[in-house]
Design a protein around this nucleic acid. Structure first.
Length: 414
RNA sequence: GUGGCUGUAGCUCAGCCGGUUAGAGCGCCUGGUUGUGGUCCAGGAGGUCGGGGGUUCGAAUCCCCUCAGCCACCCCA
């Protein structure tokens, strides 16, 4: 046990948790398809360049969280830390941009070298959607509505609130960034070490700081809203209007920001306070500059990603698996018959458990443990008459049924 | 990456200021029932006390290192 442990921050998905994950992914996929988003998958590793270019050289993910290695050809490879970069790369390398708008759903593992915590792992799983080629606010509204509908489908809406903000267009952002840097430069002495670092790399992030000392300085900082030009303000108003029409509640949070240059206009997060410090369960925004920055055609985009672990923690226990029927032979001749009968019933759609070994008592006990709905007992006596004993494991009642009628009888069990 | 808490059987935990063969409940296995489960009764298996080193006559218990989990920061899903 000393050495045989999983790599830090990774977990085995045992059946119950696998089921919980599948429920989240299935629910999200189902909702996404009703919105016209179809599943696609990109490789879980890419050339490191793909992530460096999309995430930026200064982002935390690129500077300290990527799982990067050289493969046998010497190529620098990175396990994907998020999903959007791979999709954007696929759009470019596959020439998909000719078929705009593109609407994709994806689900799968992501990798980040972080310090593990509840709801934060080194291998974790995300669902996500990307809408490419739609520059209108309608795209933002649809993406957010899709997120809200996904949370509804999982029954967790009550535990989650939507926070919304705008970063404005490129001109507005650049103007604001300048104001902000001037403001904080004048107050360097009041800022925490972390925030001084952010001032150099990613000044908008300071607004997000939880450091109490920073808060005072932040309180007096210029707000992005004041720097928005008419186009940016109109865009945001349209998004909010759409959400209002859909009855999707939100709180505008002026401190909700994104660090990278290609993000613009809408930024949003569905957050919960039920998961400790890991509050975001779905987060996304508009990234009009991303595909262009990667070397593709200028392509507007909006999307979000949701954490499957986090969502499944909120959603609680998954549906139990379907209850099987236990087939229990008595004696070697019956054993051989049972093999064939099991195969026939399985092909007919029944979930069948075989006891594998032991006497009747032992096999019934095992049937009970796997939560079997009924046991079909095949003894020499019954077989001689082409009959089987069907025992209802809930009521304990049992009777003999002709083999020919067995499937119908089992289908009749609730 | 920084700081704090924790680590005893498959699971949940007890084991006081170091003292002889490390315990409980649940679970698991066997038998009571060579053709009847879930209840009950009896019995049993299972632990290098996360790992390594040190202090000591003696360490699950004290010290150091290390690994892992949890919490906060950071970051985000």
């Amino acid at each position: 046990m000393a050495r045989l442990q999983p790599v830090r921050g990774t977990h085995d998905l045992l059946p119950e948790q696998a089921r919980a994950f599948r429920r989240v992914a299935d629910a999200a996929r189902g909702v996404a398809e009703r919105y016209g988003y179809h599943e696609m998958a990109t490789p879980i590793f890419e050339f490191s360049e793909v992530f460096k270019r999309t995430l930026g050289d200064t982002s935390d993910i690129v500077t300290k969280e990527m799982y990067t290695f050289a493969d046998r050809s010497g190529a620098e490879i990175t396990l994907r830390p998020e999903g959007t970069a791979g999709v954007a790369r696929a759009v470019i390398s596959g020439g998909l941009a000719q078929h705009m708008p593109l609407k994709y759903f994806y689900a799968g593992p992501m990798f980040r070298y972080e310090r593990p915590q509840k709801g934060r792992l080194r291998q974790f799983h995300q669902i996500g959607v990307e809408l490419l080629g739609v520059a209108e606010p309608l795209g933002d509204i649809e993406a957010i509505a899709l997120g809200a509908a996904t949370l509804d489908a999982l029954g967790v809406s009550g535990q989650v609130t939507l926070e919304l903000n705008t970063l404005g267009n490129a001109a507005s952002r650049a103007a604001y960034r300048e104001l902000l840097v001037d403001y904080f430069e004048a107050r360097r002495g009041e800022l925490s070490r972390d925030s001084l670092d952010r001032l150099a790399r990613n000044p908008l992030r300071i607004l997000d700081s939880k450091n109490p000392g920073d808060r005072a300085a932040i309180a007096g900082a210029p707000t992005l809203g004041d720097s928005l030009d008419a186009e940016s303000a109109d865009f945001f108003a349209s998004v909010r209007d759409g959400l209002d029409r859909l009855g999707i509640a939100y709180a505008v949070n002026p401190r909700l920001v994104r660090g990278l240059d290609y993000y613009c206009h809408t930024a949003f997060e569905f957050t919960t306070d039920a998961l400790g410090a890991q509050g975001a369960v779905i987060a996304g925004g508009r990234y009009d500059g991303l595909v262009g920055q990667m070397g593709g055609p200028e392509t507007p985009g909006v999307g979000w990603a949701g954490g499957i672990e986090r969502l499944s923690m909120l959603a609680g226990a998954p549906e139990p698996p379907p209850r099987p029927i236990a087939l229990i032979p008595i004696g070697p001749r019956a054993e051989a018959e049972t093999l064939v009968l099991a195969d026939r019933l399985r092909r007919a759609g029944f979930a069948i458990e075989l006891g594998y070994r032991g006497n009747l008592s032992r096999r019934l006990s095992r049937a009970d443990r796997v939560n079997a709905r009924a046991a079909v007992i095949l003894g020499e006596d019954e077989l001689a008459r082409d009959m089987a004993t069907v025992r209802d494991l809930d009521s304990g009642a049992q009777d003999e049924v002709p083999l020919a009628a067995l499937a119908d009888r089992l289908a009749g069990l609730s």
